[in-house]
Design a protein around this nucleic acid. Sequence first.
DNA 1: CGGTCACTTGATCGTCTTCAATACCAGTGG
DNA 2: CCACTGGTATTGAAGACGATCAAGTGACCG
Lengths: 250, 250
Amino acid sequence: MATLSQRHVVIERSQLPDLCVGCDSRAASVCNAIEDRDMARLAAITTSSEAPVGRVFIQEGESADNFFNITLGTARLFKLLPDGRRQITGFVGPGHFLGLAVSDTYAFSAEAMEPVRFCRFSRPRLRVLLDDFPALEKRLLEVAATELVAAQEQMLLLGRKTAVERLASFLLAQSVMGVPCGHPRAHLTLKMTRGDIADYLGLTIETISRTLTRLRNERLIDIPSTTDVIIRNHAALVNLAGGLNRSPTA
Amino acid sequence: MATLSQRHVVIERSQLPDLCVGCDSRAASVCNAIEDRDMARLAAITTSSEAPVGRVFIQEGESADNFFNITLGTARLFKLLPDGRRQITGFVGPGHFLGLAVSDTYAFSAEAMEPVRFCRFSRPRLRVLLDDFPALEKRLLEVAATELVAAQEQMLLLGRKTAVERLASFLLAQSVMGVPCGHPRAHLTLKMTRGDIADYLGLTIETISRTLTRLRNERLIDIPSTTDVIIRNHAALVNLAGGLNRSPTA
DNA sequence: CGGTCACTTGATCGTCTTCAATACCAGTGG
DNA sequence: CCACTGGTATTGAAGACGATCAAGTGACCG
């Protein structure tokens, strides 16, 4: 088990570019954020497991006994209302930590979108580890702060942006996902369904579909297939999205 | 300066009840979260300042040079869109830390709702302090995690709840604000305007007003003055709000 | 080839917004 | 004491954006 998860960790790190050391978005990746020796120590106390597509491997409200470190695949994080309305709070991939919940229960659910492999370790064990490696704790704090900033941006989106603006913001965010420093990608391959996007942006499937075709008709994007989007007019999208982290001139 | 802020800190702590040591919501207060000796050390490197009502003492997009620790008063945190639309991400009072931003610029603005007094200290200084006191860092992590959970709850509210549900959730949240463990207060005195509430809940002033009167007509609340709300039917509000952190039965 | 699932597109509906008028309250100065 | 002012809240009427309801298309797969 230990050796298995250890190998995953190594694979993870070797996949990541070694440049971009001083980059902002580097903090977003927990993988990059942890020293090699810490990662080894981390791997030693984890148990690796897998979740098939559709499996909810973290259930909101259940006892938050474990921390998770995704090593492969993608998952959606979401919260539900009693009548089934769903809000997706994020999509997470390799390198992401889950389970920072303070209370004794998880604050959200996590469901595998692709087959997901993750390392799991108990809270007490993490506590010990954090005591031994303050650097790890520092990094975790950075990660939490990064997510907090992202959450605030999402609040702005959900509370104040129109449908087009939300979709523009979403596409732009997707275009820089996993691109540490360089230029944003123009070709996106979405791993989520329209329903996922809708529940992430606080809209409905139909509105997502309509708005996408509208953006296509206005030549801002192309949609070669339902999973692929090509950004044709990046500047216009940025403008629509509300400047994308601009400093307000008002 | 140092002695001044130190006195504030002492005042802060003495105002807080010493019970409720094992309580969940204790983590939300940074004041409670820091050891006495750490607080003294903290106070030693801070400079205390004040902001009059309406003063924006943190500006989104500006260089994030300082951390802030509110010691008196209340402030609204918000983000703006280029055309002036505002999303309030939170209301913060004494004990709250600000400036956890990872990037080199603040991710939000902060404006004094009442006269605000705060201790300010530079990031490098905080870094030194965190190195000396791992316990402080651990607490900060808890605080960040708590805020993250709150942010996710707010995303659910903004993305998926109706106007009544949002207002019900808001009133209930207000009723437990500053009440660490005990029963929620029935009598609320709101420090924010309708406009603030609107920008916090992703609605308009008019909708807030209408929805409040609707709740009053349905005998769920009373509104003795524009700033005061009395919760008459707590259970009904909880039901409206969507169970309030319930574990979804679906 | 039939079935399922996801997506698209159209028509209608409802909630919240927008626009507008009025009421309210505190502070200020005549 | 009362009129005046500016900010804030309430209430009404009309409008818009997105939701809902519904039908149809296309891709994938047994």
